[in-house]
């Protein structure tokens, strides 16, 4: 089954987002299919991060409808939000690692929160840390890691729960080319297995290196949507 034939996992209908009176997004309508690789690009302040935040409900749209897996997000109660978020693996621009927890604990928390057994957690976390190349740092705390190592830990946390959708905000922004390649290869591996991958990035190199759909935003408006 080709991507275009599959049922859209994300549907946005005329989304608007305003912060007080400042428009951040205007009239955005996008369908994203299961297993797609999407790059959201545009200059700073274009609304890339805001668009991602709407997806995992860190923000709510001022107007318009947003559906994930057929569920209208406006109908999700705060108490049920965690179920939506378990569909996502999120790589934040500022990593958002918990400083009082070790790298291992930061990654394991996703599985602990969903009630996995300790043995499974130990095995999965060790494997994913090995894949991103920071297994030897597992007992260290995030403040003692370099930016690149923190980014890898953030990626490991995002993919550990084998989510339906991975959202990445500048996932290679603080990485050297070699580390960036390791991370992108890992993300592509998940994408090839059917995970939808939505990446917000400035990097035109990253977009060129991958064959994916490119959504370009400018001043909160959709200016280009190229397959």
């Amino acid at each position: 089954m080709s991507i275009s034939e599959s049922q859209p996992i994300v549907r946005m209908f005329n989304i608007y987002k305003r912060y007080e009176q400042m428009p951040a997004l205007s009239d955005i309508s996008i369908d994203i299919n299961q297993g797609e690789l999407i790059f959201i690009t545009g200059p700073s302040g274009a609304g890339k991060t805001t668009l991602l935040k709407l997806l995992y409900m860190a923000e709510t749209a001022t107007a318009g409808q947003l559906l994930i897996g057929g569920v209208n997000l406006s109908r999700i109660k705060p108490s049920g939000l965690y179920l939506l978020r378990r569909k996502f693996g999120i790589i934040f621009q500022d990593f958002k690692l918990i400083p009082s927890m070790t790298v291992f604990e930061n990654v394991a928390i996703v599985l602990e929160a969903s009630g996995e057994k300790k043995k499974v957690i130990d095995s999965k976390v060790s494997k994913i840390l090995r894949n991103v190349g920071i297994e030897d740092k597992k007992n260290l705390y995030p403040p003692s890691l370099s930016g690149g190592e923190q980014q890898r830990a953030a990626v490991a946390r995002a993919v550990i729960g084998e989510p339906d959708i991975i959202i990445a905000d500048e996932p290679t922004g603080s990485l050297d080319p070699e580390s960036a390649k390791i991370i992108m290869d890992l993300l592509r591996e998940f994408n090839e297995k059917g995970t939808t991958l939505i990446i917000a990035t400035h990097s035109q190199d990253l977009i060129r290196q991958s064959r994916g759909r490119v959504i370009r935003l400018k001043k909160g408006q959709l200016v280009e949507d190229l397959l």
């Binding site: 965690y82 978020r85 378990r86 996502f88 928390i109 929160a113 969903s114 946390r157």
Partner: peptide, 15 residues
Amino acid sequence: EEIEIMKLVGADDRF
């Protein structure tokens, strides 16, 4: 902040 991060990665209130 830690609690907000936990919520973002799918932790429920009970956890």
